[in-house]
Amino acid sequence: MHTLNRRKFLASLAAVGAAARMHGALAASPAMHTKPIPGSGEKLPIIGMGSFVTFNVGADKALRDARASVLQAFFDGGGRLVDSSPMYGSSEDVLGYSLGRVSDRSRLFSATKVWTSMQSRGVRQMQKSEALWGEKRFDLFQIHNLLNWEGHLETLLDWKAKGRVRYIGITTSHGRRHEDLEEIMATKPIDFVQFTYNMIDRKVEQRLLPLAAEKGLAVIINRPFQRGDLFSAYASSPLPDWAKEIGAANWAQVFLKFVVSHPAVTLAIPATSQLVHMAENMGAGQGPLPDAAFRRRMLAHVESL
């Protein structure tokens, strides 16, 4: 049995106060920018949430509860789109657990993926995702890393026609199979595309981002911090003075504002398991966003470091 002494009691009060201040700060902060999904005009906040690694916490109840707090902070900060995949271990299960504990899950824009080489198994996997999240109808189903994309696209188009999913998309990460992705974007009736883009991985500026704009596809950006490499490379340097001009209070916001300010990008999906980092990420969706000239200035500075 736990005992409560004066020190623990005061520490608990302090912790509750800190949490309240953090949630209050997020709730009271200015509204987050939104961008429309080109195919429908529906607006999405420009900062979403990924769940790779961060929500894969297995059966540990303390860790699950901590992730529920992170999800609550995401919603409190104005976020909507949460992205996951069956590949991410227990992440979908933990998201379902967390969604059952947030104050208002109606904010959720649910996005997951189908990731299997067999089309028939893909249907079962999608049904399992619905059960794990507790979602009767996903907002977005994506084909993970183009795996058996022909088969799964057939299924997803059928589901979309029947109203079982609102949007469909396709994803890739770490720069793989961009030529195949380009072909799909140019010829198939999808709504979303997801790939990697950040200040040190800008290959998609050449072809994929312009093509997405041309075809009217919503763009989700994964790995906006290049799996933490951006922090390793630059975060030890002092935050440049110009960061204030775009309302960036830390490097995370500099990196994210660069990504989401690209005209063809709809939103970025940074992942975190820390409330402090969530607050930083959500702050990137507020305040001024850099224009094209300012983006060039940002790049020049980072490349000079």
Binding site: F52, V53, N56, V57, G58, D60, L63, M87, S273
Partner: peptide, 16 residues
Amino acid sequence: MIPFSREVFLSTLGQY
């Protein structure tokens, strides 16, 4: 690419 963190690895070992 490891799909879980050190914290989760150690927690899962503890459960095992």
